[in-house]
């Protein structure tokens, strides 16, 4: 049996000694190139391509100012998604894990973000401010950390209590926080926050990390993603805006987010760490794809399921080769 297998492997590896035919691969390649180019041009002319304009902080401040205001308070209080994220932005949490592997934590803080300063105080400090706001910034900067925390947390709690309805917030000891949040919202309405967040006092900048994370802390980006059917629970990673095909090749990655326990954030340990588990699973499956030729059972599937009889139908017929029983 093993001798037959060895002989077969030797035959498969040896240069083909059987019947051949003329085959012009350069001509084939040229025809393929022309065909594909023409097809691409036709698709481009008829279908164009997606290009939904990017969201801006100005747009957020105009369409939902209360949400931007409340998000600014969360940044100051340290309760926003970014402020509590963990690596690679800060040490606020250990991040996700896969069993004993705390890779997110171990990778450390490589893109440090201080949400209160980077998202609120520093952008405000780049502006020529009205006296009231300038005083609020100065008060915040000169206060002790514990005092800042007390003001911002009290105000954040008060806003949460009235479910974001700012006009219903009870009077309290909020220090400069309401003025800072209003100042940032007004700054965003003017369009100045977009540039200030990117530049952070510099000139050349190509890193949008802070803008993207600040966007994600509020409802504006999330609502836009839901409206465009891009949420992870609806195969969002492989969708595209409008009626265009997206990254369909990510279907397997998106698939895991649709099924339990990965789609249940409350389920421990897997659901609560779904991002990490799915990345590991996809890494293993990718490795599996590369190693298919040496994986038992899977490597024999092509021999057991006779799709090859259709692929090489002409050859089998001409040679009178019947299918072998496995």
């Amino acid at each position: 049996m093993s001798t037959n297998k060895e002989a077969k492997a030797e035959f498969d590896a040896a240069p083909w000694a059987g019947k051949t035919k003329r085959y012009d691969i350069v001509k084939e390649g040229t025809i393929a190139l022309v065909f594909v180019f023409v097809l691409t041009v036709v698709l481009s002319l008829i279908m164009s391509s997606p290009d939904e304009p990017p969201l801006t902080f100005k747009g957020w401040a105009v369409s939902n100012p209360d949400n931007l205001y409340a998000t600014a308070v969360q940044e100051l209080a340290g309760t926003s998604g970014t402020a509590t994220y963990g690596g690679p932005y800060n040490n606020a949490s250990d991040g996700l894990n896969v069993g004993p592997l705390w890779l997110q934590k171990w990778a450390g803080v490589t893109h440090p973000i201080d949400a209160a300063n980077d998202f609120v105080i520093t952008p405000l400090s780049t502006q020529v401010l009205a006296p009231e706001i300038a005083n609020a910034v100065a008060t915040w900067k000169s206060a002790a950390d514990s005092q800042r925390q007390a003001w911002a947390t009290a105000y954040d709690d008060a806003i949460t209590k009235v479910e974001g309805k700012l006009s219903d917030v009870a009077v309290g000891a909020y220090g400069p926080v309401p003025v800072l949040a209003q100042g940032l919202t007004d700054m965003a309405k003017s369009g100045a926050l977009d540039a200030a967040l990117l530049s952070q006092g510099g000139f050349f900048q190509t890193d949008n990390t802070k803008q993207i994370l600040f966007f994600g802390d509020g409802a504006y980006l999330d609502d836009a993603g839901t409206a465009a059917n891009l949420q992870g629970g609806t195969w969002g990673m492989m969708n595209e805006t409008g009626r265009y095909p997206g990254q369909a090749w990510l279907w397997l990655y998106s698939f895991w987010y649709q099924i339990p326990p990965f789609n249940n954030g409350e389920s421990k340990p897997i659901g609560a760490n779904a991002d990490a588990y799915i990345m590991v699973i996809m890494g293993l499956l990718s490795l599996g794809l590369i190693l298919i030729p040496i994986i038992p059972v899977i490597r024999n599937l092509p021999m057991r399921i006779p799709i090859h009889r259709g692929i090489w139908r002409q050859y089998y017929q001409s040679q009178g080769i019947k299918r072998r029983k496995m």
Partner: peptide, 28 residues
């Protein structure tokens, strides 16, 4: 565009969760 804003925000969590985001920053 908006699509790249959305994809970078969503995708960062996957890469960050296994430590890759420390060097492969999809929001940069």
């Amino acid at each position: 565009n908006f699509d790249s804003q959305w994809i970078s925000f969503e995708a960062k969590d996957g890469f960050n969760s296994v430590g890759v985001g420390a060097w492969f920053n999809v929001t940069n």
